[in-house]
Amino acid sequence: MPQINAERWDAVEKLVDQFCDTDQVPAIALQVMVDETSRCYFKGRQQVGNGSDPLREDAIFLVASITKPIVVLGALKLLEAGELLLGDRVKQFIPEFGCAGKHGVTIRHLMTHTSGLPDMLPNNRELRAANAPLSEFVKQICQLTPDEPPGRMVQYQSAGIAILAEVIQRITGQSCAEFLKQSLFEPLGMRDTSLGVPEEWTTGTDPRIERIAEIRIPEELNIEPHWDWNSPYWKRFSAPWGGLFTTPSDLAKLVKMLQQRGRYRQQQIFSYRTLEEATRNQLCEIPGLSKAARQGKGWGLGWQIVTAANSDYYGDLLSSAAYGHGGATGTVLWIDPLLQASAIILTTQPQEPHGRFLARISNTIVATIEQ
């Protein structure tokens, strides 16, 4: 059975110490699972400024785009309930979406980044500066003309996940945040996880909001501090494409469920067939995609299939069966079924343009595994 080599694990901690002690990264939290063995490690500061308190062991992180596959899991709960099909057109649920060349966009297109929608709205900065609500983003995405017809290109896009969250709301009558809480987080016991900061996190003697680790905002993004990742606006915004707050231990429960083919403790959270479909490459079966469009890319339903072309987050040593997702705030989650291993790496330093620290940590983690 695979296991973690204790001496090699020391190299993981030394690398994390190096990143934090040299201030390349303000804070790093690791949760690594190999078969039945689990290791965690916390290093750095709770706040970005020097002299801040050490990173709390119950610190909560904004994981950015790791949010995306979790929102997709929410939609897959509706698929299992018979509420939607992958081939359903989005306009069945959001009639106003079916205009300007988007008539043929399906749920599968949204989940696989093949809808032709852009990553962000052209006026994304202006909307955030105006503290616009999520509903305004959805309204404007519905009016967009896609960059290409659906199913013709693979283009990473937050806009499609925003529309998927709106589909969830139209079907259930609940916000995406509330639906995820009831259908996924509560059954998994993820008590410190929320899409956006809820009101109850701001009250009490030790409010959870105080546990949120501050992100170092890169100079090129530090233009409008009232709407950056640390701002009250962004914390309340509940962005379906990047607004999830969680902890390594909470994410580990979700990972465990995925590794156990949908089962967690005594509950079957998902059918194993649903998760098999979600974690295999879907691009080969989208007929309009050319070989060139698929080259070097792999997308399941929400999950990125790890390839040599996207090693900036995952490193160089994962197997061809691995899948996961990264986040712009400096986070990555990966699961490798062949290695029987997974890793959750949460930091407060956006990776680009500061180097491949996530990939380097991933490589040292994989190097600890003894078969």
Rank of each mutant, 00 (worst) to 15 (best):
T274N: 07
L188T: 03
E220Y: 14
E276C: 10
S249A: 12
R280Q: 13
E200Q: 15
T205G: 05
R191H: 10
K291A: 06
T202Q: 03
Q304V: 08
L184H: 12
I171R: 13
W234M: 14
R211P: 00
E178Y: 11
L254H: 02
S183I: 12
Q267M: 08
A293R: 04
N230T: 09
W201I: 03
A252S: 15
P225I: 08
I223H: 13
S231E: 00
L289Y: 09
I215H: 06
C284D: 05
A165P: 05
E219N: 12
A213E: 05
L275C: 10
F270D: 09
F245G: 00
K291C: 03
R191Y: 07
G288N: 11
F245L: 10
W303C: 01
Q295A: 14
C176L: 03
F179I: 09
Q282A: 01
N230L: 10
R265I: 14
Q260I: 05
P287E: 13
R170A: 13
L283A: 00
E277D: 01
K181L: 12
N281T: 10
T202F: 00
Q295M: 11
Q282P: 01
L283N: 00
G298E: 04
L244W: 08
G196I: 04
I286L: 03
D250T: 13
A278L: 06
I305S: 04
K256P: 01
G196V: 07
F245W: 01
F245N: 02
Q260P: 07
R216D: 07
R191S: 11
N230W: 12
E277C: 01
R261H: 15
Q260V: 08
F270W: 14
I305Y: 04
T203M: 11
I215N: 04
H226V: 06
V167R: 02
I212A: 00
E178R: 14
P232V: 09
L251E: 02
E277S: 02
W299F: 14
A252Q: 12
V255W: 11
Q260R: 14
C176M: 08
W229S: 15
A165F: 03
C176K: 03
Q169V: 02
S231I: 02
R216N: 06
P287N: 10
R261C: 08
A177I: 07
E200A: 14
T274H: 05
E224L: 04
G196E: 06
I223V: 15
Q266P: 03
E277M: 07
I305R: 06
P225T: 05
E224P: 00
I217R: 02
Q174M: 12
W201Q: 01
Q259D: 14
R216I: 01
E277A: 02
G300K: 02
I217M: 05
I223P: 09
F245E: 00
L244A: 07
P248Q: 08
P248D: 05
Q169T: 12
R236G: 09
R170Q: 15
K181V: 09
